[in-house]
């Protein structure tokens, strides 16, 4: 029997969708800034300052994205067990390590049953650790490049030291590459969610809207005992 269980709390869902929106907007505006492929007529109201508007949008969404990351980080410490930062490092516990191996085998077609979990499976958690690291790098390189424009500003004070070690062009290159890695991740992420939803019938896809997942009664009992 499947039971309905409240897994993803509001901050988790909220930051997820704010991240989606910001990454989409940041990718499009960022790509335009790197390679302005649209030629707009100066007669349009946005024409005389088109690149300016695109850059402004990019910076605004960068701040929104950072706000979302900060909220999510906070929630990783005060939220429920499935929102916890511990999910990022499954290899720290014996149970996590086993789950990691099971998930890997499942994806490689070496095992039929996907590991039965309430939140993320261990492999997904580990992937998110990489993604969080990429988020950090992307934000850092972005703010360093923004800060360089005004060497008297706060962002330059915080990030300017990096230019002693790396040239700004190399930082730009890293910033571009990480965007593509995040897009590649999005492809993987949506695919994996669809796959697990299909296989397990646990309502994974709708859970990121509603917060509720469907889990087996036996698993629910285990969870309740722990709590």
């Amino acid at each position: 029997m499947l039971r309905r269980l409240y897994v993803w709390e509001i901050p988790v869902r909220l930051t997820h969708w704010v991240n989606v929106l910001s990454i989409v907007v940041l990718s499009f505006t960022g790509y335009y800034i790197g390679n302005p492929w649209i030629l707009v007529s100066a007669r349009e109201w946005y024409g005389p300052y088109f690149m300016g508007i695109v850059r402004f949008t990019h910076f605004v969404f960068a701040f929104i994205f950072v706000a979302s990351l900060l909220l999510r980080t906070y929630w990783a410490f005060v939220g429920n067990a499935w929102a916890s930062w511990r999910n990022l490092f499954p290899f720290l516990t014996a149970e996590g390590r086993k789950s990691l191996g099971d998930a890997l085998k499942y994806y490689l077609f070496l095992r039929r049953e996907p590991p039965e979990v309430v939140g993320h499976n261990a492999l997904a958690g580990l992937t998110y650790a990489v993604i969080v690291f990429l988020y950090f790098l992307q934000t850092f390189t972005g703010f360093a490049l923004l800060g360089e424009v005004n060497t008297e500003g706060i962002w330059y004070k915080l990030t300017g030291w990096v230019f002693v070690f790396v040239s700004n062009q190399v930082l730009r290159q890293i910033h571009h590459l990480i965007m593509w890695l995040l897009i590649a991740f999005a492809v993987h992420h949506v695919y994996a969610a669809m796959l697990i939803d299909n296989e397990e019938g646990n309502g994974l896809m709708s859970s990121i809207f509603s917060g509720f997942k469907f889990v087996h009664a036996s698993l629910l009992k285990k969870v309740n005992n722990k709590g």
């Binding site: 590649a184 993987h188 695919y191």
Partner: peptide, 16 residues
């Protein structure tokens, strides 16, 4: 960077 990135995304999409 952008050509390599596009290649990575394409590769990932094909693999999945």
């Amino acid at each position: 960077a952008d050509q390599i990135g596009l290649g990575i995304v394409g590769g990932v999409a094909a693999a999945f």
